[in-house]
């Protein structure tokens, strides 16, 4: 099943914990990524006073816990049941506001890491250096390096070398927050190597440049082939999903006439193709894989119209294999 490794009991879904200073952007992140809130509307979000639990129901289930910024959970054992918070954890996401002083944020992050180190050494700590929109490129990369340096120095001063901490630059105003979440979630998917191998072979067989497996609702990609990824390819695929989802919503409404037709004349799984103008032959191809996932491919060479049969066949094989990996 698509259950995560450290979730022993069936009903405990793995958790992504969002922590960090007040106003660092945690609630905004969770609203934009999991509730499709337009980024500009996060201005109206009020400060969080209690843990807010959201669950995401998709190819696998998990929960997102949004914490109030002002309370220190790892150190507040007397107030909170620390075990019940960190037990089923998938990842701890620590949000640092890049447009604000970050010394306190780093100090608290390190205290938390050191605190958890003994009891939960396997927790992935994911640091989002957030709100990097509006910062100049130079300033942004200096700041990013500075934060990484400080965290690592401080941890090793405390005798914790090579801590499992990863860093990302994020903003809710562009694709970076989705990219970062994709990478965080990929670490929690035990089947990732299988998925990558399947995508690699699909790419080789159909001469596909880049293939992504997307969770359609969240636009998080759960796997891609192992060729180098770049932000630009992710962006165009993610934007493409928006187009398909929006148009499908508009024209996929429940028409009273079609109650019993069962869609037998059309495709069972949605499929789409875009041919871009000029610039050689550029194609974008999308195929629904199951209720939650869609395959998106970037192709450049020969016209897929001609090798459509080949693609259909290989995607069919891929889809069958996927059923083994994610039965739902």
């Amino acid at each position: 099943t698509g259950r995560m490794p450290n979730s022993k009991d069936g009903d405990d879904k793995p958790r992504l914990l969002l922590m960090g200073q007040k106003r660092s952007g945690k609630s905004s992140i969770s609203s934009v990524v999991f509730h499709k809130l337009p980024p500009s509307e996060t201005l109206y979000i009020e400060t969080t006073t209690r843990i807010k639990k959201d669950s995401m129901h998709s190819f696998m289930d998990f929960q997102i816990w949004d914490f109030p910024g002002q309370v220190d959970f790892a150190n507040a054992a007397n107030l909170f049941d620390v075990d019940s918070i960190f037990n089923e954890i998938g990842a701890l996401i620590w949000v640092i506001d890049a447009q604000d002083d970050y010394f306190d944020a780093i100090a608290r992050l390190n205290a938390t890491i050191l605190n958890l180190q003994t009891t939960y050494p396997n927790i992935n700590v994911e640091v989002f250096v957030h709100k990097v929109d509006g910062l100049s490129e130079d300033y942004k990369s200096d700041l990013f390096r500075d934060i990484i340096q400080r965290v690592q120095d401080d941890l090793s001063d405390n005798g914790y070398e090579n801590a499992p901490v990863s860093f990302y630059q994020t903003s809710i105003y562009d694709h970076s927050i989705f990219e970062a979440f994709s990478k965080v979630i990929q670490k929690l998917i035990p089947q990732l190597p299988t998925l990558e191998a399947l995508l690699n072979s699909l790419c080789a067989n159909c001469r596909i440049q880049k293939a992504y497996l997307f969770d359609v609702l969240s636009k998080i990609y759960i796997a891609t082939d192992t060729s180098p990824t770049d932000m630009a390819s992710y962006e165009i695929c993610s934007d493409y999903i928006d187009v398909i989802v929006d148009i499908s919503e508009i024209y996929g409404w429940d028409r009273p006439e079609e109650e019993d037709s069962g869609g037998e004349s059309g495709n069972q799984d949605a499929e789409s193709l875009i041919r871009l103008e000029k610039k050689g032959n550029n194609y974008l191809y999308l195929r629904e894989i199951n209720k939650y996932l869609a395959l998106i491919c970037l192709m450049s060479e020969d016209s897929p119209a001609e090798k459509k049969a080949l693609i259909d066949y290989n995607v069919g094989v891929f889809q069958e294999a996927m059923k083994q990996v994610f039965p739902r």
Partner: peptide, 12 residues
């Protein structure tokens, strides 16, 4: 621009 776009589903 795209030269062409198509979407095929069971409903439309």
């Amino acid at each position: 621009n795209f030269a062409e776009m198509q979407i095929k589903t069971g409903r439309f």
